[in-house]
Design a protein around this nucleic acid. Sequence first.
DNA 1: GTGCACATGTAATGTGTTACATGATTAT
DNA 2: ATAATCATGTAACACATTACATGTGCAC
Lengths: 181, 181
Amino acid sequence: MKRSSLEYALLGLLRQKPQSGYDLRKAFASTPLRHFSDSPGSIYPALRRLQVRQWVSAAAENGSRRRRQEFIVTSAGARALVAWLRQPVTRDDVIWRLDELVLRFAFLDGNVDRPDSLRFLEEFEQDLAGYVHELRQFEKDFDPQHRSTTGYMAFKHGVDSYQNELQWVRHVRKEFAEVLS
Amino acid sequence: MKRSSLEYALLGLLRQKPQSGYDLRKAFASTPLRHFSDSPGSIYPALRRLQVRQWVSAAAENGSRRRRQEFIVTSAGARALVAWLRQPVTRDDVIWRLDELVLRFAFLDGNVDRPDSLRFLEEFEQDLAGYVHELRQFEKDFDPQHRSTTGYMAFKHGVDSYQNELQWVRHVRKEFAEVLS
DNA sequence: GTGCACATGTAATGTGTTACATGATTAT
DNA sequence: ATAATCATGTAACACATTACATGTGCAC
């Protein structure tokens, strides 16, 4: 069940617009975001996996003689994407897969309805707030003497990063809540 | 040459204090930070690799009859760690390996001198500032209509994250510069 | 005497990275 | 003509994850 986030990223992009592997590579290369490699060695095999799983289907384009295949998301693929988006947000997601949560957020639009989006953000905020609280607790308890200075600073910076993330989620959630009411 | 950051994380921790694989696992499990798994399947093989490369040496402990081996960093290992820390910071590091840069920062203490630390921070700030500028540029240029709303928000959030990171680096660099002068 | 923490490992699997490879079309 | 871009792929390699496996010492 646990698929790589690259596969979902491809699926999400293909939902927005059917395109070729090359197009997707360019999207990753030009979009300054999201840490997906534009190397053919990652994207083409991933597309192949999606195709085998029948989450996308390939249509050979013959507009030009140049070889090129566009991928489109099948209905099964769309269901899989929505299921991924609708998954409950867990504490582990917040700790280990924060990037994936942001990716899920990015694809909410057009794939799930507003109540679902709001629920996603509420869970996100809840778990993130809980984790930030834990980190603050840990920060208070531990003895700064035992750590190196830069080590301690790096730790505090980590906590601040999560705090910033939390502020963003709160802000976004409020926006969503307003529009809904 | 490109070693996994897990290996350097282990090396850095072992430099701070010789300890066993189990101790390191506990450190990863209890420290709420840095996304290293505490699974034996990652740590023990990594230690083995370090040992084969002679960056650490294992000393069997026989204080108790319980089996346990402590690892200590060899001089070659220490040199490798320092070489890793002293590497120039590149744009690619900033984009693809930000976490590794923070990890390097955490281990500066006790391994490189202040001028080297300062140089690290200067390069970090430079490259990060350049990248943030690029992102802002990209943000201005592209057409918000073509993207989904949440997609656009996620992008802006990404930029903000980098901006926050930059602020932190600037702040830390100033602290370091003051102490040095 | 049973369960828990200590302590170390291996095997299967999936997947990302890098490098290599091929060929078509367009621009200069 | 030749370089750049379009377009797709494979192979080798390293690595992380997960699950499984084994055994010791201590506390209750």
